[in-house]
Write a protein that binds this DNA or RNA. Structure first.
Length: 203
DNA sequence: CGCGTTTGACCGGCGC
DNA sequence: GCGCCGGTCAAACGCG
């Protein structure tokens, strides 16, 4: 179980700091000597206006005082990460559902929050149960990206896990969507992690 | 037997 | 139009 978690500031390009909600997130790192950073993958101006998207990390936007680093992902990113944005994952996900979207309809972006974790293991136990549904080789990286979906019935949350090629010790976990149910496993480390986040990210 | 993982196939978006 | 790429599906498989 977790012995030590260190949160360190991670500077994406054109990153800014903001206060983010964090109350609903729990991290329960499986191994020791892990470092975690998290960032909001939303475009801060366009995406954060949608309050349904802000709550990936926390259900309650008012409760947090944790400084985080925010990455700005252009809303026009290619088919990659944002490919299925706007889809209703409660019904059918993926390309088949995309077919049902009429031409000209504006797709709604889903919230994405990325955590950087310096860890020996890829999987961060965040208290939810996940089922792996895909794995793809990543261009310019020797490590694959794994795709997970929350196993809770009708929960549409997904996450991607990828290890950085240029820093093999860093694992990037990207969350997409909002859990519609409580955490399934109790986690004792969350407060500790949040404390670490606050300490390190405020510099 | 139920649940989760693996992995090749498939699809849509995008750039040329 | 074609090829590349990221994301998803789903059958097969493994494990407890």
């Amino acid at each position: 179980m977790l012995n030590f978690v260190e949160v360190f500031p991670y500077n994406f390009s054109s990153s800014t700091s903001l206060t983010a909600a964090s109350s609903n997130l729990s991290l329960n790192l499986m191994k020791d000597n892990s470092k975690t950073t998290y960032s909001d993958y939303n475009n801060s101006h366009n995406q954060l206006e949608d309050d349904t998207e802000l709550d990936l990390i926390g259900k309650n936007p008012k409760c947090s005082s944790h400084e985080v680093v925010v990455d700005h992902v252009p809303p026009t990113t290619s088919s990659g990460i944002g490919n299925s944005e706007g889809n209703d994952f409660n019904s059918v996900s993926g390309s088949k559902l995309i077919n049902t979207i009429k031409k000209g309809e504006k797709k709604i972006k889903k919230a994405k929050c990325a955590f950087q974790t310096r860890s020996q293991v890829d999987i961060i136990d965040d208290g939810y149960r996940w089922r792996k549904y895909g794995q793809k080789a990543v261009k310019n990286s020797k490590f694959p990206r794994s795709y997970y979906r929350c196993t809770y019935q009708e929960c549409n949350v997904k996450k991607q896990v990828q290890r950085l090629s240029k820093d093999e010790g860093v694992v990037v976990t990207t969350y997409e969507g909002t859990h519609s149910h409580p955490i399934e496993k109790s986690t004792d480390n969350f407060e500790h992690i949040l404390t670490q986040m606050q300490i390190y990210s405020s510099c």
